[in-house]
Simulated assay, not measured.
Amino acid sequence: MILTVTPNPALDLTYRVPALQPGETHRAAPPAVRAGGKGLNVARVIGQTGGHAFVLTTAGGPSGLRLADDLEASRMPAEVIPVSAETRSSVAIVDDEDGETTVINEIGGALTPAEWIALHDAVLRLTVPAACVVGSGSLPPGAPEDFYAQLVAAASAHQRPSVIDATGHALLLAAEAGASVVKPNRRELAETTGRDDPVEGARILLDAGAGLVLVSLGAEGMLAVPRAGEPLHARLAERLTGNATGAGDAAVAAVATLLAGGVEDPSAVLRRATAWSAAAVLAPLAGDLHPTYPEFEARLVTG
């Protein structure tokens, strides 16, 4: 079982428009609505590819009820910590003309000290049977900055690998705690380390204590920077257009699946993560892969 922890989930609303024109009025069909947030998307991809994931998340208010209902309807194994703050929404607008997606993410509400304790206790309990632990996404306002570092420590206490997809000080602390893999995108890495060069930024996280740094480069593919050896790069030969909002989550799902199976080779991790990330771009909703995802690894250009 792969445990995915999402302290700041969202109710995802995905609209499609023929062509997005800023400043203009658009008519659209009702949105696709589903329980979202990075860790939930990771769990969906793991399930689609034949793995077993367990979701730990929070939910509050009417949107939180809709999120919990969707988790149940999707038959995703989950534990939901009730919170007083309303679960935030995330709106994605897909432009069918050029394939670009515009995303508006609400920040989310603060958790009370008692709610953080309940979430932390659940992490400690659910880490025991997990083969890998994943911490994904933003933290709500007022969150302990070391929340993901605590997650890494809980995994390490049971000799479990951990994958963290975060940004800023929370990511740096997770690296210092010894996260097996950290997966920022290029912008998040620059914001965290102050370095525009992704290799230089990755080296800072490695020096802090991370085992492997995987950097999403958008259309340029993905970069893996290991503790030993040269950086590795992989991409598709052709540029894909579609909904890229879940591409990073698909990469995290690939990493967690391999680590849970005992595979740690950076080259294998990079190839699977890049392939699944690309396959996610062609899927209509975040948390899904295009049905042809097994074929994507053979289409990669590496080096």
Rank of each mutant, 00 (worst) to 15 (best):
Val225Pro: 05
Thr127His: 02
Gly168Asp: 01
Ala122Gln: 11
Ala68Trp: 02
Asp207Val: 00
Ala280Ile: 01
Glu200Tyr: 01
Glu176Gln: 15
Ala53Arg: 08
Ala247Phe: 04
Ala253Cys: 12
Met76Phe: 10
Arg44Asp: 09
Thr127Gln: 02
Ala131Leu: 15
Pro7Asn: 08
Gln21Lys: 14
Pro231Gln: 10
Ala260Glu: 04
Leu205Tyr: 08
Glu86Leu: 09
Ala154Pro: 04
Arg125Ile: 05
Ala298Asp: 15
Asn8Phe: 10
Gly99Ser: 10
Gly218Pro: 01
Gly262His: 12
Asp69Ile: 01
Ala154Glu: 09
Gly137Gln: 06
Pro18Gln: 09
Ala256Asp: 07
Leu20Trp: 15
Ser89Lys: 15
Ala154Arg: 03
Val152Cys: 08
Ser156Asp: 14
Leu111Gln: 10
Leu172Asp: 09
Pro294Thr: 10
Lys183Pro: 03
Glu200Ala: 14
Ala208Tyr: 07
Ala268Ile: 02
Leu172His: 13
Ser90Lys: 01
Leu282Met: 13
Leu124Trp: 04
Leu300Gly: 11
Ala59Cys: 12
Glu145Phe: 04
Val263Met: 11
Met1Trp: 06
Ala224Val: 11
Ala278Gly: 13
Asp165Glu: 14
Pro30Tyr: 13
Trp276Asn: 02
Pro9His: 06
Leu236Gln: 12
Arg195Gln: 15
Ala92Leu: 03
Ile117Arg: 15
Val199Met: 11
Ala155Pro: 05
Ala85Gly: 05
Gly287Thr: 00
Arg160Met: 10
Asp207Tyr: 00
Gly248Cys: 07
His52Phe: 03
Gly137Lys: 03
His52Met: 05
Pro284Trp: 11
Arg125His: 12
Val281Ser: 08
Gln150Val: 00
Pro30Thr: 12
Asp96Pro: 01
Glu72Met: 10
Gly109Trp: 01
Ala175Trp: 09
Arg75Asn: 13
Arg203Met: 12
Val17Trp: 06
Asp288Arg: 11
Glu220Phe: 08
Ala110Glu: 13
His233Glu: 12
Arg235Leu: 06
Asn185Pro: 05
Thr302Pro: 00
Ala280Leu: 02
Arg272Tyr: 01
Ser267Gln: 14
Phe54Arg: 15
Val45Gly: 07
Lys183Ala: 11
Asp165Cys: 05
Glu72Gly: 11
His233Asn: 09
Arg160Ile: 13
Arg75Cys: 12
Gly37Phe: 00
Ala78Leu: 07
Glu297Asn: 02
Ser136Thr: 05
Ala53Ser: 09
Ala179Val: 07
Asp165Asn: 14
Pro231Val: 04
Leu172Ala: 12
Gln48Phe: 00
Gly61Lys: 09
Val94Lys: 02
Ala153Ser: 13
Val42Tyr: 07
Asp121Val: 02
Ile46Gly: 07
Leu56Pro: 10
Glu230Phe: 04
Thr112Leu: 15
Leu236Trp: 11
Pro113Ile: 02
Tyr293Asp: 03
Ser63Pro: 00
Pro184Thr: 04
Arg271Met: 11
Asp95Met: 13
Glu238Trp: 06
Pro144Gln: 03
Pro266Asn: 04
Pro9Ile: 07
Leu71Arg: 04
Tyr148Glu: 05
Ala157Lys: 13
Cys132Gly: 03
Gly60Ser: 09
Ile93Leu: 15
Ala85Arg: 01
Ala19Arg: 14
Leu171Ala: 06
Thr257Leu: 14
Glu264Leu: 12
Asn243Met: 07
Val213Ser: 02
Ala85Asn: 02
Ala131Arg: 15
